[in-house]
Design a protein around this nucleic acid. Structure first.
Lengths: 339, 339
DNA sequence: CTGAAAGCGCTTACAG
DNA sequence: CTGAAAGCGCTTACAG
């Protein structure tokens, strides 16, 4: 590999001048620029990222931090990976995957290695020790999701509050008054629970109360098997319910199958609307699930954007954004059955 | 952040001695080692990865190269990402995600940036220009998948040949003689086609001929919608077929649903065995698909291992491995219907 | 507009 | 066993 010095030699200029023309960091005469560019072309020169990083104090590498143990990713969470990587590249950064257990101390290994300029955190808990750790340090970070207290913290998250209200209102409009929220559980209570589930439950409680509806909450495993089991339990325990909000992507198709196996017709007997799933999973159910689709790709992009904005323009307004889900019609919403 | 020089000052030794004790690269007296380690602890020192990389000429960063445009990843391909990242970390490397279009020239941008020590390539085509490009360069690489000619190229791939034979023999044992292979299409013919599909078709042709069976091949879109459409087409065109090999993960649940919508019972009228899908997708179908599960997590790990072996021990045997699928029973395999 | 030189944080012959 | 010094490939004051 040719170095900058090689280019300088061939172009008969100094190393510094090569740097200036490559980075446009100082004015360079047209003649000199031409010489340098020719030499670069002839040598097939490319700037070495490591040398540059050491001199600048910036690696242009970002880390995407996600739970190491969680080894079954929903179709939705994949989109975080790929859209984040895309956006990073688009803005001249690289994204490294950083699987991590929940111990906060492992974060200092990352931030003090000097390898990354910043961190994007996924799967945020309401009281997340990793966020506390990052807040205490100097490495910029952003969240996909958000903690209970978001003061001073850049984040992008799904607007679950809006999604729940929207879903409930769709069911109300169809005449449903006995509702259920079915999710995958809040996870680790010590950490305040998993944000999306906690927020969804709260909003579900508030809106059903406010609209004068009956609302129950059930949880089950995040898998098709979990969904099938859950369907049976649900029908046994809550025969009066006719409208279901389902926030458990992996369980979706299994849940729908389980309801029908027990003799229910969708949407004649029961209406189901999924929240925050992918369109791919929704279409795998039979009949296809009506769903408020998670804006996962947008979130991945904006999560990276928020971080890079902090890095490149620290004085810009703090990026904190909630993104709405989009509705996909499907075939599991219908009028409430007459008594 | 404390530097190595800071540690040296505090321990009253030279910079070099600090380096020797950290890296165990030269003998250091117990007394000196203790002083250095104390100083490190007191300063919370961590070696800077960039300085180290520049001096060593090794960044300990690997790139995972995948098609940028493909934005719907199957449950299986996600496992490549996470298992590769896990294994890289385990062996002291970091994995950066490298979305790339199919132009081979973009590869030199990656390899000549000096950022990565090696490259793992996903979604390999039979005649893959990216592999040619990499073969011409000096950056070590490994494939998840394989090209037509694998001479001198480290790879790990699914043993599709074995999977097809195994699937066919399961169907034969159940009395099926009219078989179909349904896949997602070979993709870009200019590149020789997508390896798994091409190999599966070839093997399917060979084994059916060899066993004296009837075998037809159909392709459809890689989505639930594609699966539903395909089911209708398939039934119309091949009413005599009773045993189906399905290698199209995203279309699986939709295909099964489509067959039943047309009045077929599984497995009474038709038997289906999926090849190379994930267990997650298989369980989303109703009834649950019988499937030869792709060893995707093993492949991700071994793909990274193969690369790191090349980096750390270039004289070891060339890593080239085929991994078998494992059977998951499901409920879509049954005896061929009597005439 | 251009260049000589210091410095980013390490590693590693070389000398002792 | 320990240290002084060169060097990895860049960037950037400073001087002209």
């Amino acid at each position: 590999m040719a170095t900058m010095q090689d280019v300088a030699n061939r172009a008969n200029v100094s190393l510094a001048t090569v740097s200036f023309t490559i980075n446009n960091s100082k004015p360079v005469s047209a003649r000199t620029r031409a010489k340098v560019e020719l030499a670069m072309k002839e040598l097939g020169y490319r700037r070495n990222a490591v040398g540059s990083a050491l001199a600048r104090g910036r690696t242009h590498v970002l880390a995407l931090l996600y739970p190491a143990l969680q080894h079954r990713f929903s179709a939705t969470s994949v989109l975080f990976f790929t859209s984040a990587a895309d956006q990073a590249r688009l803005r001249g950064y690289n994204l490294v995957l950083w699987p991590m257990s929940n111990e906060a101390d492992a974060i200092s290994e990352l931030t003090s290695s000097g390898l990354v300029d910043g961190v994007v955190l996924m799967e945020v808990q309401l009281d997340d020790p990793r966020v506390e750790e990052l807040s205490g340090g100097t490495t910029p970070f952003s969240l996909i999701g958000r903690t209970r207290d978001t003061t001073g913290i850049p984040y992008v998250d799904v607007n679950f509050e809006h999604a729940v209200e929207n879903a409930i209102d769709r069911l109300i409009k169809l005449g449903h008054t006995n509702l259920a929220l079915i999710d995958g559980g809040t996870g680790d209570q010590l950490l305040g629970g998993y944000g999306p589930v906690a927020r969804t439950r709260t909003t579900f409680g508030e809106i059903t109360a406010q609209r004068g509806l009956t609302g129950i909450i059930m949880s089950g495993g995040a898998s098709s098997e979990g969904g099938r089991t859950l369907a049976a339990e649900f029908l046994a325990e809550h025969p009066e319910t006719t409208g279901i909000l389902l926030m458990n992507e992996p369980a979706g198709p299994g849940f729908v199958a389980g309801l029908q196996k027990a003799g229910k017709r969708l949407p004649d007997d029961l209406s189901v609307i999924a929240i925050g799933s992918s369109i791919d999973t929704a279409t795998m159910a039979e009949p296809e699930l009506s769903v408020l689709v998670s804006p996962a790709d947008t979130l991945g992009r904006l999560g990276v954007d928020a971080l890079i904005d902090r890095l490149d323009e620290p004085n810009k307004a703090l990026p904190q954004r909630l993104i709405k889900c989009t509705f996909s019609k499907g075939s599991t919403l219908g009028p409430a059955p007459a008594h």
